[in-house]
Design a protein around this nucleic acid. Sequence first.
RNA 1: GGCCCGUUCGUCUAGGGGUUAGGACACGUCCCUUUCACGGAUGAAACACGGGUUCGAUUCCCGUACGGGCUACCA
Length: 504
Amino acid sequence: MEKRVRVRFAPSPTGGLHMGGVRTALFNYLFAKKHGGDFILRIEDTDQTRFVEGAEEYIVAALKWCGIEPNEGVGFGDGPHKPYRQSERKELGIYKKYADKLIASGHAYYAFDTEEELNDMRKRLEAAKVVAPQYNAVTRQNMRNSTTLGEDEVKKLLAEGVKYVVRLKVPRNEEIRFNDIIRGWVTVNSAQVDDKVLLKSDGMPTYHLAHIVDDIEMEISHAVRGEEWLPSAPAHILIYRYLGLEEQMPMLAHLPLILNPDGNGKISKREARFPVFPLSWKDPREVMPYIGYKESGYYPEAFVNILALLGWNPGNNEEIFSVAELAELFSFERVHKSGAKFDPEKAKWFNQQYLRKQSDEDLAKAFKPILKEKGYEKEDAFMIEFCKLVKEKVQFVHEFWDHGKYIFEAPTTYDEKVITKKWNDTSKALFTSVLENFKSITDWKMQTIHDSFEELVKQVGKIDMQLLRVLITGVAGGPQLFDMIALIEKDEVIKRLETALNKL
RNA sequence: GGCCCGUUCGUCUAGGGGUUAGGACACGUCCCUUUCACGGAUGAAACACGGGUUCGAUUCCCGUACGGGCUACCA
């Protein structure tokens, strides 16, 4: 029988969750949805030295904003496998049990080496031109551990409470093969794998032990994680094997990385000239907060859509997908092997697509507080009409201001290019007649203004529309001219025309 | 350095033994609009290189180059 699909997103709370992490969470979520399975949030807080205040809360909030909510785990309700925080699970003795089992079966051992001794070992190996110094089948023979020390000595050290770690006893030369859903068969020789620390001297498990124990105990069916874990996967295979759990081992899927748009390498929060966090993140160790996608004006649906198409696509030419559609379409077979450079320009385009789907009413509602900040308040009908007029020019709601502020504010300067090119001796008389014409209009509606203007043109000849636009708004471009004039309202238009005629 | 993974327009990608190698973003031109944008049309733009295998390779295999990841009592 097929195992029930149970996947997990298992970040460590060492900082804000960035877009790479969100994408990993997303792919887990989509896979779970697709197969009617479970999606779990597990917090891997086994490194006490790297714990960052607020990180866990941030992870939960970010997932909520993105709409990719786990149905089990920290912040989303306990399931049958609680607790979901590894520090709490450690207190329950869960990991030690497994470590002891490995020691008992001879697949792990105690190591008493101090930091200095480890450093000395590396220095010695480097001096001897060993290419990759590591604690392994060869070097462990010269170190202080339970494979070299006598049984009595080990017992004595343990009884004395001497600090120790538990290391995995990796064989000297053995082919390790595993089948990655995305990458296919990967083969590594165990000589490349070091004797990984399983239990640290503070009693905490390392990632290597903890995630395996938890994946087994939480009945995880697929371990979906970033490519950076590929090199340590062989060690993980060994742990499952030595625990006698190879049969229950989750399927492995290593996701390609999201790379920097310029230059290369993994996306880094420091260098990026675009947001890397879903929500703004204030690191307690740093002064400046990092602005997020949310604060930059992105819709969560757009953000998720962008992420989904980084390293995956459905195989057709479509690009706009809701989360539900993505869940329907998703499969690991269509996930790439190679990393994807993130393109901030295309990200904006995605947001624009989602903005256009919004109703004028919703856009008006969203823009209202921004306008208020600028010092203007207008009734709803006005706002809706305004958004309708300007929406096709913007990618973000806050851009309504940049592209439409002249509707609220009279111009202080006039587009020089247009004025130099088009303003001449006859202009003043011409636009004075426009002013008079406008003054005579009683029914200030787009069609009426337009018709009246047409009549005037018949009498006085061609009037430059762009010049008219510049006199009223100061800028050369903008939305449909007569729609805009109607929106600005009669008194204001007349006032602006008078001012312009005086100034020019 | 070593190991692992990868490589189709600038970027995201489709495709896959025989194609005019398709789409999207960005860019150019034109049309629409008495403006800008939207929209439409169109252009420029790619199979990293070298060897095989094959009647035929961008597609399969092997090398090389390049890129990335890992190389901690971090995840």
